[in-house]
Structure formats: structure tokens, C-alpha cells
């Protein structure tokens, strides 16, 4: 009897173990088929636009010839990276790019969280919708338009700012010859453009907070500030960390459209404060159609960004393993 059972168990385990595994994987897929289906466009997007082209980064190491193709072109090692060093500006550019992006991430997220919390506390539905739309709008204005608007506000001769200044008898300001003010102008414009859009994610997270916790807190007699401090903000933490990590990956990639259109291609008096890798590369390589050089810059930025993400993820995992990406 015992042996028979054992045999049955053995037989079962022999056959069943793999089949159970298969079944679970299949089951998992079947169970979450809707979710997976919804992921499909994103998966396809990353495969097509990120993974398949990856070998193409090899172009950064070649003397690219159209007829020979990427892998048929002559290999030149790190020669295509030389021009970055030759300029003597690599450090300044990297510093500017990282500092700007850092400021964007820190101030951007802080204000987005603030706005999301404020919005969630507003009870008038109408006002909520209206203010959300108003803040959302700048996101859809193209950088060219933003540059034009900025010029019309800031220019010396006919600008809105100086017209107002003159009205009050103050001396007009020469914004376009004062490089020191540009980090603030760029930061403000960035925040103006992105706050509405960025706060949506936080707002959604706040909406997703279990209402029973909030109600329990209310019964316990918390006031609004306490509720925000002890319930809303802690529940936003993991979202903040994830978005922060995402943003860090792109810390080496500047927002070309914004910088180029605000500062222009010619006003080099502002460059020490406003030049980022992208604008420099545009100036250095325009009219040259040197795909290899551009790819070299892209690779430099990507590898730098990759390292930063890995390090920061490692740091996050060390202090709060729940919130890390992987």
C-alpha cells in the first residue's frame, strides 16, 4: 500500500512537476492576459525603438559610409569621441547639463507634488478641472513658441517687461546680455511647462489612497495638514522614488528644444550659463551630417545615464528596498 502510494506520488511528481510549472506560467499569462495585452504597445515600442537599434550604436566607432552600411564601414575606435575633448568644453557642458536637469528634477517634482496635494484638497470640482487644464496647457505649446513668447516678454526695445518697467520709471533691463539670470529663466519656463503634466501622476496616486485610512484619520481628529503629512505624502513616496529614478536616467540628456529656442543659436554671451551638451553638439556638427559623431555623443550620454541609474538604484535599494526599481 505504502509503496503503491509512493509510486503514485513519484509518478505524479515525475510528470507533474514540469507540467505544473508550465501550467502556472501559462495560467499567469492567461490570468493577466488583459494586462499583458495592454502592455503590448509599450513592449513593441521598446523592442522596435530601443532594442533592435542598439547594435546600431556601433556607428559611433566607424567612419560611416552609406554604401558600406553600419557594419561594413571602417572601424576607427574612439576617434569619433575626440571632438568632444578637443573643444575643451566637455566638463562645462556635462556640468551644465547635469545641474540643469538636477534642478528640473528636484524643483519639478517638489512643485508637482505640491500642486497635486493642493488639487486633491480642493473640493470644488469645477475649480479643480479648470485649474488643472490651465496648468496642463503650457505642456502643449511648442518650444519655438515658448522661445518667441519669452523674447516678446524679455527683449530690450519692445519687450513687455521693459515696457512695464518704463511705465513705473524704472531702468529697463537687458535680459539677453545678462547671463546670470538665465538659469532662473530657464528653470521657471521649464516648471511652467511641465508642472501641470507632471502633477497628474501624483494626483492619480493620491486619488488611489485607500479612503478608509483617511476616514480613520478624520475620526481620530487629524486636521488637514496632519493628514497630508502622515497619510498623503508617505503614500506618494514610492511614486516619487520611481519617477526620480526614471528622470535620473535622462540626466545627461538636455532638453534641446527648450534651451535652443530660449537662448538662440547666436547669443553666445549667455552660453557659459546656458550651454548644454545638445546645443554644443548642434553648433559643432551642424552642416556636417556626421552621423558617427552624433552617435558618439548619444552613446556617451546613454552610458553616463545608465551608470547614474544603476548607482542611484543601488542607493535606493540600500536604504529602502521596497521602492527600488529592480
Amino acid at each position: 500500500m505504502k509503496t503503491a502510494i509512493r509510486e503514485v506520488v513519484n509518478a505524479n511528481s515525475n510528470v507533474a512537476v514540469p507540467s505544473i510549472r508550465k501550467k502556472t506560467l501559462w495560467k499567469q499569462i492567461v490570468n493577466s492576459r488583459t494586462l499583458l495585452f495592454m502592455c503590448l504597445p509599450a513592449i513593441a515600442y521598446f523592442i522596435v525603438f530601443c532594442y533592435i537599434p542598439m547594435p546600431g550604436a556601433y556607428i559611433a566607432f566607424t567612419n560611416f559610409n552609406y554604401q558600406a552600411g553600419i557594419f561594413g564601414s571602417q572601424f576607427v575606435g574612439f576617434k569619433n569621441f575626440e571632438f568632444l575633448i578637443q573643444s575643451g568644453k566637455l566638463w562645462m557642458l556635462t556640468r551644465n547639463t547635469i545641474l540643469y536637469n538636477f534642478a528640473f528634477i528636484i524643483f519639478g517634482n517638489a512643485i508637482q507634488v505640491l500642486v497635486a496635494v493642493l488639487l486633491s484638497e480642493v473640493s470644488s470640482r469645477k475649480f479643480k478641472k479648470l485649474s488643472q487644464s490651465a496648468m496642463f496647457l503650457p505642456y502643449f505649446i511648442s518650444a519655438v513658441m515658448v522661445g518667441l513668447i519669452a523674447f516678446n516678454i524679455l527683449n530690450y526695445d519692445y519687450g513687455f517687461l521693459n515696457t512695464v518697467m518704463k511705465l513705473f520709471g524704472a531702468d529697463p533691463v537687458k535680459a539677453y546680455s545678462t547671463p546670470e539670470v538665465w538659469p532662473f529663466i530657464i528653470l521657471i519656463v521649464h516648471l511652467w511647462q511641465n508642472t501641470g503634466y507632471g502633477s497628474v501622476v501624483y494626483f492619480a496616486t493620491i486619488c488611489g489612497i485607500d479612503q478608509s485610512i483617511v476616514e480613520a484619520a478624520q475620526i481620530d481628529g487629524t486636521n488637514t495638514l496632519q493628514r497630508i503629512r502622515y497619510i498623503t505624502l508617505p503614500s506618494l513616496k514610492s511614486t516619487v522614488v520611481i519617477l526620480f529614478l526614471f528622470a535620473l536616467g535622462g540626466i545627461m540628456k538636455g532638453n534641446f528644444g527648450l534651451f535652443y529656442n530660449l537662448v538662440g543659436s547666436s547669443n553666445s554671451n549667455l552660453f557659459p550659463y546656458t550651454d548644454i551638451i545638445e546645443t554644443f553638439v548642434y553648433r559643432a556638427l551642424m552642416n556636417q551630417f556626421n552621423f558617427s559623431y552624433s552617435a558618439a555623443v548619444g552613446l556617451y550620454q546613454s552610458i553616463f545615464g545608465f551608470i547614474i541609474v544603476i548607482i542611484s538604484n543601488w542607493l535606493v535599494r540600500k536604504f529602502d528596498s521596497e521602492s527600488s526599481l529592480f
Binding site: F49, I52, P53, M54, G56, I59, G69, F256, Y282, F289
Partner: peptide, 18 residues
């Protein structure tokens, strides 16, 4: 002004072609 971005794009596209 989009030259740079487009060049990076073509790098990606050429990768696919390759």
C-alpha cells in the same frame, strides 16, 4: 534646429535597416 534630434533618430532607424 531639429538636426541633432533627427540625426540621433536616424541612427536608430539605420540600426533597424542594418
Amino acid at each position: 534646429r531639429k538636426v541633432l534630434i533627427s540625426m540621433l533618430l536616424v541612427v536608430m532607424m539605420l540600426g533597424m535597416v542594418a
